[in-house]
Amino acid sequence: MLQDTVTLAHGAGGKQTSELIEKVFKAHFENPLFTPDDAAVLQIGPGADGQLPRLAMSTDGFIVSPSFFPGGNIGKLSICGTVNDLACMGAQPLYMTCAFVIEEGFPMSKLEEIAAAMEKTAAEAGVCIVAGDTKVAGRGQVDGVFITTTAVGRIMDGVTTGGALAKPGDSVIVTGDIGRHGCTILLARDDYGIEADVTSDCAPLWNAVRNVLTEVPGVHVIRDATRGGVGTVLYEIAGQSNVGFALDAENIPVDPGVRGVCGMLGLEPLYLACEGRLVIITPPETRDKVLDILRNSPHTEGAACIGTVTEDHPGRVVLQTEIGAQTILPQPGNELLPRIC
């Protein structure tokens, strides 16, 4: 019989550890490759053209506080974050490992809920959890549960994306309204005493990316606008590609709830984190096609073109404001934001 809370014994490697793995993790992650041995043994076959596959691999740690929030929990987030990172390289996520650090006393039912969310999200993203690790830390040494996921994926044939590949004239697309995850976490922490109906945008985006790249393999850049938001990502790409950006402020999709909260707290939505939003930079002639595909794919129905890549003002993001003036989007600041992912 499983206890109500996680104890240090669950992390000691003995009978209780096996029981925790068996009853919580294996119950949700079971698949033929899920290994009882020290490491998973995997095979990746050649591509359609007989060439050896190109692989992408990524890892990410998740320490979000609170670990349950409107629109998801740390489990769902830990799958989305890593899968979306692979998707940005045009890689189909194949295999994933996950490592848990759990605080002594963490409710077992909550851990179950987290594992169930991971199972569901991994299934949607088509990734197979093949190995894991469980540690229990003393009370106060971690806050609830921390998760690290690592995944490997196969890059689609004929696809090469990267932050240094943006070209002047390219169109800049976001896959939905921005900043909802960051805003949700700020509100969930209840530091501000503000209530608003905002849910996290946390979502796995591989299926949408696959749909786009199948039809338009020549996309130049795909970036996951997580910590730092769309603004930070654009400044990074501007630096990597030595280009500028001209955005039209009116076309940037922002949920009215998010806009209201930003107004009250003096925050810029472009710097709020997303966990299910991509920045896609693509040649202008492919813009409408990409938008059309995204609008018919899961989690990207709200895609919008927000501007273009420019040769002018390299390294800078310039906004056309609602009065028709052009302003520089201030560079990302050094404010201490709460743990959002």
């Binding site: 003096g266 404001t321 609602e322 009065i323 028709g324 003036a325 052009q326 302003t327």
Partner: peptide, 12 residues
């Protein structure tokens, strides 16, 4: 002040 700069009013 903040809104005037954010909107770029001085420039126009």
């Amino acid at each position: 002040t903040h809104e005037i700069f954010r909107l770029g009013i001085r420039q126009i």
